[in-house]
Write a protein that binds this DNA or RNA. Structure first.
Lengths: 111, 111
DNA sequence: CCTACATACAACCATAAGGTTGTATCAATG
DNA sequence: CATTGATACAACCTTATGGTTGTATGTAGG
């Protein structure tokens, strides 16, 4: 199924507390849009838009269940977002390693 | 120093390709704002604004070096952002574990 | 100290985001 | 098959975002 990864969309989607809460709740994967909407102080349509934004970002999917559509978080997409942060971490470590190497070299030169 | 964590700001800051590239470059922590700006097809002022957004999100800091200000990525803040994604992952695992437990219970009930 | 370089900030513009209400579709049920 | 419940979508308003240019501040050197 390989949902596409658009970091702009994914991070933008995560940059809103309501949407992050929807992501959290949708991990259980039990509530429809209307049920989700009851948790927030805004209209049903507003929540529906938030879900649509999460859906376009590949962070949730909707599965028909009777007359409802159950919202479910796509954990794989969250992992991919985390993967970018991991890469920064790796770059950082690489830099630190090079610095350490320099220091080590200096020490060896001293010795 | 404990930079504050505002997920809205952090994720919004990361939701732009130019800013992500600045974060990446600033891991090396060698370039000033003007030097960074040369990499992008936009004005110096625009890049400066991007840096300011990253700074407010706690993702980079500026250190005076002569007449320049060197931009440096704050890896700790990236780790904190990743931490949120890790928590989602944990919730997911918890859910999977509970499901597994149910299946296991069912099997045991069958046996 | 005057000049030049690097950064900062204000004012402005176009477009996107986040909310509203209202209307349309679509599936289950009496 | 008419009604109800759940979702979708369009139109609209207000504010935020990302870009521009222009001006001000601050630090280094001749």
């Amino acid at each position: 199924m390989q949902t596409t990864l658009d970091f702009d969309r994914v991070f933008r989607a995560l940059a809103d507390a309501t949407r992050r809460d929807i992501v959290r709740r949708a991990i259980a994967g039990e509530e429809g849009v209307a049920e989700l909407a009851e948790h927030y102080p805004m209209s049903f349509a507003a929540v529906q838009k938030h879900v649509a934004i999460l859906e376009r970002a590949g962070l949730v999917t909707k599965v028909r269940s009777g007359r409802r559509k159950v919202v479910r978080t796509n954990v794989e997409q969250l992992r991919r977002a985390r993967g970018l942060l991991d890469r920064y971490e790796e770059l950082w470590r690489g830099r630190v390693d090079r610095m350490t190497a320099l220091v080590t070299d200096a020490k060896e030169a001293d010795a």
